[in-house]
Design a protein around this nucleic acid. Structure first.
Lengths: 244, 244
DNA sequence: CAATTTTCATTTGTCAGACATTTAAAAGTC
DNA sequence: GACTTTTAAATGTCTGACAAATGAAAATTG
């Protein structure tokens, strides 16, 4: 692991990159202890604060964890699903909010991915997943529910649908995408009228998953996608009129 | 933005979290300048190195960028697609390599997502995307191609397929998933015989996309998924035998 | 001898202060 | 007015130090 002191990049960034490469390439394996900060500063010929900045960069990506004490140090972290989720969601949320991604684009991406796992979910869903879906549908039917709570329940419903596919990789990818869209979805204030329609479509999806009817699930999802898109367009148009 | 000095967590982690929340919630907008490191250390009542560690954490997630000089400082970064990609790929790659994700699971997730965007790609693909797909197919037909180069070309082919859907959000999500699988795919050393089959399937996919035949594209992708899965299982079985 | 307590060395976390480097704006010069 | 020089502000880096945590070894005790 070498760095170039004459490079324009920060030393801490270079050191972080060198260690990151060592982890990704497998030179450093899970739970292996990195040299102490003092040893690293010797190896790279930099000061300890610089090494520490590099280590914090890696910690921010959940690549390492640190422990104090005699046998402490920095250890290569086993990246787990919850940590990976959290990062995926943060990144996706910011990507959407900072790049003027249209509601159409995000919506299309979301439902395309959801449709992709519906057939698997129909095949493998457990009683637990079904129960969660039904419970969320029931929650969504409560009249006093705030818009925020409705959206959160919507996310939970779709999360259960995705998890039903029993593929953690798919869940990881999709849950992030769905959750990242929540701020965009919150923009669409669901009136009592539109909630009714969405609720009916959710029920159809749940029915299809329960009876393991992949085609019916797909049809319901397509209708839900179309309806959500229409809703979004109407809201946008209404806002546009307000400003003219 | 407040922190708790009595918390067990690192001060730099708390400060990073506070600033991250301010960014995600929109209190700090894109390109806005954060207070200088000296001002931040005053505000949070910590030393400058601690503040710097917090800022490096945020920089590692591409949430801020720093600039030296008189008008320099830390600025809220507009997260762009390339940066988001890079992070997504790093995270996904490590998640797969560190969690004993089976080839089956990863493969299923990948092709499920790819099938999701094939219909969109069939509808919207441009001449550019088609040309890229054809070029990669041609490259894959070269006899002298190394396994690594073949896999890289495979990734490029599928990347073009995904990009054809003309949905940057979908591209961002899927390209990361496909690329993260490359190490797993590399494990399967493609013999000349299997390359031939894959090549034929790639051609069918390209033909389908060119003629905008979504059904045909889906069929070819399903066959490709099945074939890849079979290949993977055979390789695994062969390895198992070697160890008994 | 076994169990417990104490000591101690190691390592990360934090701080203070200093200097180097970069950068743009302000001041000076022709 | 255009160019050069100075200057101030900010990040990047270094040195040295102390605090706090922690496990292992040493000392103590029954």
């Amino acid at each position: 692991m070498k760095i170039d002191p004459n490079s324009s990049a920060d030393l801490s960034a270079q050191i972080a990159a060198a260690i990151r490469d060592a982890i990704v390439s497998g030179q450093l394996i899970v739970d292996e202890r990195l040299p102490s900060e003092a040893e690293l500063s010797d190896q790279f010929s930099v000061s300890r604060p610089t090494v520490r900045e590099a280590l914090k960069r890696l910690a921010a990506q959940s690549l390492i964890r640190t422990q104090r004490g005699a046998t402490g140090g920095a250890f290569v972290n086993r990246l787990n699903y919850p940590d990976a989720y959290a990062q995926h969601i943060t990144t996706s949320t910011l990507l959407l909010s900072m790049n003027a991604v249209s509601f159409e684009t995000a919506c299309e991406a979301r439902f395309a991915m959801e449709r992709a796992c519906a057939p698997l979910s129909a095949k493998r869903r457990t009683a637990d997943h079904l129960a969660t879906m039904r419970a969320e549908i029931h929650r969504q039917s409560q009249p006093g529910l705030t818009d925020e709570a409705f959206c959160a329940s919507d996310v939970a419903f779709h999360r259960a649908l995705v998890d039903g596919a029993d593929n953690p990789v798919l869940s990881y990818q999709l849950a992030g995408a769905v959750e990242a869209m929540q701020p965009l979805m919150n923009m669409i204030t669901f009136t009592a009228r539109s909630r009714e329609t969405i609720l009916a479509l959710h029920s159809r999806v749940a029915d299809a998953i329960e009876t393991q009817n992949a085609t019916m699930a797909d049809t319901a999802l397509v209708e839900l996608a179309d309806y959500t898109l229409t809703l979004g367009r109407n809201v946008m148009q209404a806002r546009l009129k307000l400003h003219t």
